[in-house]
Simulated scan of single mutants.
Amino acid sequence: MKLGDGVEQALHSVAMLAGLTDGGVLSAAALAEFHGVSTSYLLKHLQALSGAGILETFPGPKGGYRLAKPASGITMLDVVLAVEGPAPAFRCSEIRQRGPNPVPGRFFDKPCNISSAMLRAERVYRAELAKTTIADLIDELTALDDGSIAARGCAFVAIHERKTSREAQSKG
C-alpha cells in the first residue's frame, strides 16, 4: 500500500503544531519551509485537516494554523483519513467476472476472497494507526532526541510563530 506524500507532510505538520504556545499559529508557508515542501501542495492538506476538525484555521496576514484539539486526542488514523479519505485503499473491481469463458454467477454470490483478505488487512492497519496519537509520536521522539531535534524545531517556531489577533488583543 502506498500513501501519498501528503500523509507524511500532514503528520509532520500536525506534530509541529502540537509544540506551539497557547494562542500561537504557524502559516502554511512556514510549515512548508520547515519541511522543505511545496506550500501549495501542503496547503491542500492543511485545508483537509481543518475540514476534519484536526486543525483550526485563522485567516489573514497574521493568521495560520494550530491544533483544534490536544495532540493526545488526534490519532495517526485521523490524519490519514483526513488526507486520503475514508475509502479503503484496495478497491475490488470484480475482474474475476471478466474475460473469456465466463463461469456461472453463483460463483460470485460471496465477495471476492482477495478483496476480503485485503479489507481484513486494512482493518488491522487502521486499528494500529488508531492506537497511536500525535502525543505518542512526540513522546517517542523526545525519548530518542539528544536535544538537537527539539532545538531545531524550537528555534524555527520562535521566529515564525504568530499570535492570533484574538490572543494578542486579550494580552494588549
Score class of each variant (00 low, 15 high):
M1C: 03
K2I: 05
L3I: 10
G4M: 06
E8T: 11
Q9V: 01
S13R: 05
A15M: 15
L20K: 04
G24H: 00
G24Q: 01
V25I: 10
L26W: 00
A28M: 11
A30C: 08
A32G: 01
A32V: 05
H35F: 10
V37R: 04
V37Q: 04
S38A: 09
S40K: 06
Y41V: 13
L43M: 14
K44V: 10
H45G: 01
H45E: 13
L49M: 01
S50F: 13
S50V: 14
A52S: 15
G53I: 12
E56S: 13
E56Q: 13
E56Y: 10
T57L: 02
T57N: 03
G60S: 06
G60C: 10
P61N: 11
G63H: 03
G63D: 04
R66Y: 00
A68P: 01
A68E: 07
K69A: 14
P70F: 14
S72N: 12
G73T: 06
M76P: 01
L77F: 06
L81K: 01
A82D: 06
V83N: 04
V83R: 01
G85E: 03
P86G: 14
P86Y: 07
P88R: 05
A89G: 00
C92M: 03
S93W: 07
E94W: 04
E94D: 09
G99W: 09
G105N: 08
F107M: 02
C112H: 05
N113P: 07
S115Y: 00
S116L: 02
A117K: 09
M118C: 07
L119C: 05
R120D: 15
R123D: 10
R123L: 05
V124T: 11
L129K: 02
A130R: 08
A130D: 05
K131R: 14
I134T: 00
A135T: 08
A135R: 15
L141S: 15
D145P: 04
D145V: 03
D146G: 15
A151Y: 05
R152K: 13
G153Y: 07
G153L: 06
A155V: 11
V157K: 07
A158W: 07
A158C: 09
H160T: 10
H160I: 04
H160E: 14
E161S: 02
R162L: 02
R162F: 01
K163G: 08
S165M: 15
S165D: 15
S165Y: 12
R166K: 11
R166V: 14
E167R: 12
A168N: 10
S170E: 08
K171L: 13
